[in-house]
């Protein structure tokens, strides 16, 4: 008894249909890429000198910290949660790191401490969410406040970083030619984070469980998957990424300031959503989030090219976020009806 459900014809149409049925979840990512390309083209047409290696390179270099945060946020949103604490945790770990360095601790110790502190904040959020049924946004909002307060507790004013290793991360420029393509160690760090996260999500049981939990937590439980551990770990990863972003941002600015990253959590969420990750969880890719960060960076660059108020960045991002959320909502409503 064989069902007639498989298309045996290998016509072009069948191929296309198969491609779509396999890759449908990549469509939002393609949409983000499309928007990025449209922006590039429009900016180039308008300014004439937008698409230069220098500007494109700076998309990565100026937003390395955001990219790292977006990677962590992608894990959390994929499970159906949200983490509003990332900006504040980034500021706190940055402050902590800068003050430890000032006190003379070796950088080889300071960076692990920053990562562990980030992980601990993430774990705290995860425990509140998972074991006490606190809504993710409340738990992470509390963590955001706690981290912001802690950052001010470290110091009320900015701390300059003079450690060579940290400054090396940003000051070293590997470039093809002066003014051409270039990359800094922080940029490499951010790209590495993306690659590792993409591999973890695509090729490990943990990664696939993240998707399963976000797709249908109840099912994942009934399938015997380790739901609790996976969700906790997603928040921990987001915390670690926030710690790493703290390193990158400190290197980028050469100093830590307790007010760093105010509103960054919103930028991060916006980048992830624009990159095609569904806020309801279960669908999305870190590569998409990377594209989302580039969209964000392009908007920011274009606005500074225009010489307009930087406040337009947030407004544009907010509008774009809205469009994507509404489209997502329509897609979800459609698939429910089916």
């Amino acid at each position: 008894m064989t069902t007639s459900l498989s298309p045996t014809r290998t016509s072009g149409l069948a191929f296309a249909r198969r491609f779509i049925s396999r890759r449908i979840s990549w469509v939002p990512v393609f949409a983000a890429v499309f928007i990025l390309v449209v922006m590039f083209v429009a900016a180039q047409a308008y300014f004439g000198n937008f698409l230069t290696p220098r500007v494109i390179s700076s998309l990565l270099l100026d937003n390395a910290y955001l990219l790292i945060l977006a990677v962590g946020m992608t894990f959390v949103i994929l499970t159906g949660g949200i983490d509003l604490s990332v900006g504040a945790v980034m500021a706190f770990t940055g402050m902590l790191g800068a003050s430890l360095l000032r006190d003379g601790l070796p950088v080889a110790l300071v960076i692990p401490i920053m990562l562990v502190v980030g992980a601990a904040m993430g774990l705290g959020v995860g425990v509140l969410v998972q074991y006490f049924g606190v809504q993710p946004f409340i738990a992470s909002l509390a963590a955001m406040f706690a981290a912001r307060g802690l950052a001010f507790m470290v110091s009320l004013s900015s701390i300059k970083v003079e450690d060579k290793a940290i400054l090396w991360l940003q000051s070293t420029r590997l470039q093809a030619a002066p003014g051409s393509w270039s990359i800094t160690p922080t940029g490499i760090l951010a790209l590495l984070t993306v690659v590792v996260a993409a591999l973890v999500l695509a090729y490990t049981r943990f990664g696939r469980t993240i998707y399963a939990v976000g797709g249908n937590e109840q099912s994942a439980k009934l399938m015997g998957l380790p739901v609790v551990r996976t969700k906790l770990l997603a928040y921990v990863i987001s915390g670690v990424c926030a710690g790493l972003a703290g390193v990158a941002f400190t290197a980028y600015t050469g100093a830590s300031y307790p007010l760093n990253g105010i509103g960054t959590e919103l930028d991060t969420i916006a980048a992830v959503v624009i990159g095609g990750t569904l806020l309801t969880g279960g669908s999305g890719y870190v590569l998409g989030s990377m594209v989302g960060v580039f969209v964000y960076g392009t908007i920011k660059s274009a606005i500074s090219f225009l010489g307009a108020e930087q406040s337009w960045t947030r407004i544009t991002i907010g509008a774009l976020l809205l469009v994507f959320v509404v489209v997502q909502r329509i897609i979800v409503a459609r698939s429910r009806r089916r």
């Binding site: 979840s25 399963a212 249908n216 399938m223 669908s283």
Partner: peptide, 10 residues
């Protein structure tokens, strides 16, 4: 009780 967002094989 499966996950619609994953492939059949998964």
């Amino acid at each position: 009780n499966l996950c619609g967002n994953l492939s059949v094989g998964e």
